[in-house]
Design a protein around this nucleic acid. Structure first.
Length: 881
DNA sequence: CTACCAAGCCTTTTT
DNA sequence: GGCTTGGTAG
């Protein structure tokens, strides 16, 4: 592989380039021809059409390494944009791993938003902001808009702020400033849309704040109105790389085109079949017209799939081919056939959850102790172990040896001292007895399995079920840590301290905890602030001085204001401007905050300050006195928040991080099943994937179809495609005949996408209990009817389906069967007796009414009676207060 | 001003 | 079913 062909990309390059290129490039060896082509075509526009699982991240990271290795660019001269923080992180890690060193020096690898913040902090004054602007989240945004709407005398019931927020967002996605807004758009929202948008932007500027959309919009505006600034960056970023190009919106597209406009060294990677963010302004058109935008673009197709089995791939392809106007790719794989895609219909959503829970436990159970334990990685020992097993001939003479080895390798990180011993023992025994070696291993680990749902409310059924059977799971992208009430409150306190102009934050905390400053008092503050043209907190100060407010409220308000002043004094982080107008300082690797903020002498550590703020404000006390079941959890979260602060230099740095990083990944030692939305799953892969809720109206989502018609349906179909292609080995699609929607029982029809699955790659399973009888094997009825459904694509008229429909409404036919086995440690049994008061994270307080092995029956004060595993509750006395 | 209750919305999907 | 909002009573 070390032939001259590695140099051919540099024909005509300068001698020094050639010399650089002479460095070995081992990363090229691992690539297939298409990937290699995409990596080596360094100059000029490149479009990489990368199907699901075709190794696009590998190609992208190899390309970065190649750029560095050939000396084409220094790390800080490469602009690499992703959509999610996770993708950015992964790319950083992989580039680092390939280079064999840490990748400190790639400051411009990040999400659109993160990179824009950096740029905007630097040039904020060009759009009328100060460089320490705050970033508002949706909640602040809506509250602000609500104020404006009310001020404009519009009924905010008929014209909800939320709606306008969405409109403004969509305008910003299209790079439309108020001035550029077409009349048709401006007329939206009771004819006042454009007007209020304008006011909103003005108000944001006054508050020295931006919303998410502004991050991009402002930067685009700066580039468009200041060619000198743009030119500087065009020169600096010698190469531009974009991940998930199919998800770019107009603003992002403009941004990219402006930045790459000079040298046109832009490489976009994407897959039109995975465009699932149309509702957020993404334009599939961007990828479809790339060749027109960048004439002479090099188009490379990655079509070899390394992820999924042929059955899974075929199922996905057959579904997606129902879409029109695709760029067209033919995915293929060299992998073995594997299992067919499973299709199961269930009686109702509860049973679907139960069934999936059982299947997960089945797949995750193995007879070896390592099945249940995950220890620190010790791969070196692992490799030795494999050798030793070989020496001992433990694996000799059995045709599954290959697979066992593969399995061992795959799970090397699971092995620790004791489990190795027991594994060895287990394998030896098995061999002596002639039993299967494979079966000593669990087929999959829990963290290799995922449940992908269309909408987040579907998650609850699974959470409830898994909680009761004690199956460890984690919800990804659910209610996010930083969106929780207590966290937002705490952060509002920090914001008030850090930036005095932050009215929204002040509003939020002024009467939290209760200070006797209700509507009336707050109104007075508002009026006073406006009359004097100052921020709310200054207004409050004036109001106090003028004695415009009295009684308990006045006293409390004075205390609050004094406290804020004191806290601010404790933090003493005076800002010093550092000149930033030279090419050379575009990036020197330091963060923006470090550049601009020079801490004064000794000041209180910000973590300590945070604690002081929360204590002295009475916020902690508020939750300590709160008796609701959530209170302990909230205190816990506050503690976590303070802990998270440790990773930052100051409060401001932290606040910025929080506004951009919405995902919080906590690495537990214990392997857990993932539950997430299909959207959140993009870019991920799992050996085992469950796709529940394939019912018309749910998936494809009714709303999507109503709002966007065929376009919406096609996007839903792409979502289905994304879902199926997440699976490596096992993919199970299911639907339920009955489902609770808004608390009402509703009968559901199977998704139309189910009819688009290719019969020969799908195995239709009989749902347990669907005909009352369930498990005694012979009830192939339902399966057969499913088959016939699919043969006559005349959908919902099959006898089997009709019968199922008829039973809708008479619930209770399928009795919940007790679960067979759970993943629990049996030691935890009976530390409780009947009558004990216990506490549960989700259900709150309750009383033990029944004990059955390790399962407790608990009558909860608020949540009713539940059965659950003992380890999920604590004695009520132990709950921290 | 707060605490409680009824009514009405709602469920896409997210940086 | 659950959450937010708005109205009313104390």
């Amino acid at each position: 592989m070390s032939s001259f062909d590695e140099f051919d990309a540099f024909e005509g390059a300068s001698l020094s380039d050639r010399a650089m290129a002479a460095r070995p490039s081992p990363y090229l060896v691992d690539l297939n021809p298409a990937q290699r082509e995409a990596v080596k075509q360094l100059d000029g526009p490149v479009l990489m059409l990368a199907g699901a699982g075709t190794g696009k991240t590998k190609a992208l990271t190899s390309r970065i390494v190649h750029l560095l290795n050939t000396g084409r660019a220094r790390p800080n001269e490469i602009l690499a944009v992703t959509f999610t923080n996770k993708a950015a992180r992964e790319m950083k890690n992989r580039v680092g791993a390939m280079l064999g060193q840490s990748i400190e020096g790639m400051p411009w690898l990040g999400t659109f938003h993160a990179i824009c913040v950096k740029l905007l902090r630097r040039h904020a004054e060009l759009v009328g902001l100060k460089s320490n602007f705050t970033i508002l989240d949706t909640d602040d945004q809506i509250r602000l808009l609500k104020q404006l709407i009310r001020a404009a005398n519009i009924d905010d019931k008929r014209w909800p702020a939320r709606h306008l927020a969405n409109l403004i967002d969509s305008w910003k996605n299209k790079a439309l400033t108020p001035a550029k807004l077409p009349a048709a758009d401006a007329g939206a929202f009771n004819n006042r849309g454009g007007e209020i948008y304008d006011q909103y932007q003005t108000r944001l500027r006054e508050l020295n704040a931006v919303d998410f959309g502004d991050l991009l919009l402002h930067v685009v505006t700066i580039f468009q109105t200041h060619p000198d600034v743009l030119a500087q960056y065009q020169r600096w970023f010698r190469y531009v790389l974009v991940d998930e190009y199919q998800d770019t919106n107009v603003a992002q597209y403009l941004w990219l085109r402006l930045l790459a406009g000079g040298h046109k060294n832009i490489c976009c990677v994407g897959d039109d079949d995975q465009s699932i963010y149309g509702w957020r302004g993404a334009e599939v058109g961007n990828i479809l017209k790339f060749e027109k935008d960048f004439p002479g673009a090099h188009v490379v197709r990655l079509e070899q799939n390394y992820r999924s089995t042929p059955h899974i791939l075929a199922a996905a392809s057959n579904v997606i081919k129902g879409n029109e106007g695709r760029l067209g790719k033919e995915l293929w794989t060299a992998a073995e056939n594997g299992e067919k895609v499973c299709l199961i219909g269930h009686w109702d959503g509860e049973e679907e959850a139960r069934s999936i829970g059982e299947k997960i436990e089945d797949l995750a159970s193995g007879s070896s102790p390592i099945a249940k334990r995950r220890e620190n990685p010790r791969s070196e020992q692992m490799m030795k172990e494999i050798e030793r097993l070989g020496e001992l001939n433990v694996l000799e003479g059995l045709n599954s040896r290959e697979q066992v080895l593969k399995r061992l390798k795959k799970h090397e990180s699971f092995l620790a001292e004791e489990s190795r011993e027991s594994l060895l023992w287990e394998l030896t025994m098995r061999q002596q007895e002639g039993r299967s070696l494979e079966a000593a291993f669990p087929r999959f680990y829990r963290d290799e399995m995922a449940i992908l749902v269309r909408a987040s409310h579907q998650m609850r059924a699974f959470e409830d079920r898994f909680l009761t059977i004690g199956l460890p799971y984690r919800v990804i992208g659910g209610p996010r840590f930083y969106e929780r009430l207590e966290i937002r409150d705490a952060m509002a306190y920090f914001r008030v301290v850090v930036s005095p102009d932050d009215d929204l934050a002040f509003e939020r905390i002024v009467n939290t905890p209760k200070r006797g400053l209700g509507n009336v008092a707050q109104q007075k503050i508002q009026v006073c602030a406006r009359a004097n043209g100052v921020s709310l907190i200054e207004g409050a100060r004036i109001l106090l001085a003028e004695k415009g407010i009295g009684g308990k409220g006045a006293k409390e308000l004075a205390i609050l204001i004094n406290s804020v002043d004191r806290w601010r004094g404790l933090s003493v982080e005076h800002q010093t401007e550092v000149p930033l107008n030279d090419d050379d300082v575009i990036d020197d690797g330091r963060t923006e905050t470090a550049m601009r903020i020079q801490p004064d002498q000794a000041n209180m550590p910000h973590t300590e300050l945070a604690e002081v703020i929360l204590d002295e404000s009475g916020y902690t006390a508020m939750w300590q006195n709160d008796k609701t079941p959530e209170a302990p959890g909230r205190l816990e979260n506050l503690k976590e928040l303070v802990k998270a602060l440790e990773n930052f230099d100051n409060l401001q740095g932290f606040l910025e991080h929080v506004s951009l990083i919405m995902d919080n990944e906590t690495d537990d030692a214990e392997p857990k099943v993932s539950i997430m939305t299909l959207h959140a799953a993009k870019g991920l892969e799992f050996p085992v994937v469950f796709l529940p809720g394939w019912e018309d109206g749910l998936f494809p989502s009714q709303r999507s179809m109503d709002e966007s018609g065929l376009k919406g349906l096609e996007e839903e179909r792409r979502l289905a495609y994304v879902g199926i292609t997440r699976a490596e080995e096992v993919c199970t699609i299911s639907f339920a005949g009955n489902r609770q929607v808004f608390g009402q029982w509703q009968s559901q029809l199977p998704s139309r996408f189910i009819d688009e699955l290719p019969e020969e790659h799908v195995e239709v399973l009989t749902a347990p209990g669907i005909y009352g009888g369930g498990y005694n094997g012979s009830s192939g009825d339902f399966g057969a009817s499913m088959q016939s459904r699919m043969q006559n694509s005349n959908t919902y008229n099959s006898p089997g389906w009709k019968r199922m429909q008829e039973r809708a409404g008479q619930r209770g036919l399928s009795q919940p069967r007790e679960t067979r086995k759970t993943v629990i440690d049996l030691e935890a049994v009976s530390s409780f007796t009947i009558g004990d008061r216990v506490f549960h994270q989700k259900f709150g307080y309750g009383e033990v009414v029944e004990i059955e092995g390790d399962k407790l029956g608990v009558e909860f004060d608020k949540a009713g009676s539940k059965k659950l595993i003992a380890k999920f509750v604590t004695a009520a006395d132990d709950v921290p207060f």
